[in-house]
Simulated assay, not measured.
Amino acid sequence: MNQEQRPMQQLWDALNQPSKPLEKSDKALLQEALTHTSSGLNPHHEQLEFLGDAVLRLTASEFIASAYPLMPVGERSSLRAQLVSDRWLAELGSTIEIERWWQIGPKASGDATAAGTIRAELSEALIGALYRINGLTAVQQWLTPYWQRSAEAVLSDPHRGNCKSALQEWSQGKGMGLPAYSSEEMNQRHGDPRRFRCRVTLPPKLAAEGWGRSRREAEQQAARAALDQLTCS
C-alpha cells in the first residue's frame, strides 16, 4: 500500500516546528491527516481537510495583510486565491515529500495522475492537524516561507496568474472583441494534467492551445500561450 513509513518526528521537523517529543495524541492527529479515504482505513483525512481549508484561508489572509499592508482588497483576494489553490497545496505536499508518510489505497497508489490531488488533500488535512496540535501560530510558522516565495512569483508575473483576464483586457484595449475558448475533455482520469484541451482564438490570426486538469486550468494555459505569442510578435 505504501513505501516504508517514516517516523512522525521526521514529519514534525519537516513542518518547521520546534523540536519536542510528540505526544501520542499528536501523532494520532498527524496519522489521521495522512490517511486517505482510498486506504479504507478510519479515521481518515476528510474532517481535518475540512478544518484545514478554513485555517488555510485565514492564515493566508493574515500573511498577505502583514506582508503587503498597502495592497488593495481586490488584489489581496486574487493573491490569496493563488496561495490557497489546489495546485499550491500539491506543490507544498511534493516539497515536503508527503508520500513518505501517507497511507493510500492500492488503486490510488497505482494512479500517477491522482497523485497531485491526493497531495493537495492531505496537505490541507495536515494544516488542520497542525492547527489542532499547536494553533494558528504553528501553521503560520510552517507556511510563511512557502507563501513568501509563491507570492513573489505571483506578483512578478505581469498577468498575476489570471491569463484569461489579461488576454481579455489586451484584446478589448485593441478593439478586437473577446477571445473565444473551445474546450474538450480528452479522458476522465482525475488529476491528469492533460485531461482537458482548450483552444483559444482571436481574430484575425491569433490561435493557441493549452492543457489542464480542469477546463479552467486548460483555458488559463491556452490564454498564457496566446499572451506568449503576443509578447514574441
Rank of each mutant, 00 (worst) to 15 (best):
W101V: 03
A207Y: 06
R76W: 01
T201W: 05
W142K: 02
L136W: 15
L11V: 01
G173T: 00
E49L: 04
W101T: 06
L30C: 05
L130H: 10
G74N: 08
Q82W: 15
E91G: 05
A129Y: 03
P18L: 08
S39V: 06
K164H: 06
P106D: 08
I127F: 08
A180E: 11
G105F: 05
A218W: 02
A120I: 14
Q31V: 14
R197V: 11
E49D: 03
A223D: 03
T35G: 02
Q9K: 14
S85N: 07
L227P: 03
D157M: 12
G212Y: 01
L155C: 07
P106E: 12
S165I: 01
S171L: 09
H190W: 14
G52F: 10
A223P: 01
E185D: 08
R189N: 06
W12V: 04
G116H: 08
Q17F: 12
N187Y: 15
S150K: 14
G116W: 04
K205D: 14
M1K: 12
R6D: 04
L92G: 15
A33Y: 01
C198H: 04
S150Q: 15
A115P: 00
L92M: 15
Q17N: 07
I133W: 11
P179Q: 03
A115C: 03
V55H: 07
I127A: 10
G52A: 07
R213D: 00
I64S: 00
H36R: 05
L227K: 04
M186E: 09
T35R: 04
N134W: 05
S85P: 10
T137H: 14
A28S: 08
G212A: 01
T59W: 05
A226S: 08
E75K: 12
D157E: 11
R132I: 07
E32Q: 13
S25C: 13
S150Y: 11
I98G: 06
G105N: 03
W142V: 00
P69L: 00
N16R: 15
W101K: 04
H36V: 10
Q221L: 03
H190T: 05
L89Q: 08
L41I: 04
T37H: 13
T137V: 10
A65Y: 07
S39A: 13
T35V: 04
R100L: 12
G74V: 12
E185Q: 14
A54T: 11
M1G: 15
E185I: 02
G110S: 12
P18D: 10
W211Q: 00
A90L: 11
S66R: 15
G175E: 01
Q148S: 09
Q148T: 08
L30W: 05
L41H: 09
F196H: 09
A207P: 07
L122G: 02
Q141I: 01
A115Y: 03
Q9G: 05
N16Q: 14
A65Q: 10
M186H: 14
G175D: 09
C232W: 04
A60R: 00
D228N: 05
E32V: 02
L51R: 07
I127K: 02
M71Y: 04
G105P: 02
S25R: 15
M176Y: 03
S171W: 05
Q82K: 14
E184W: 06
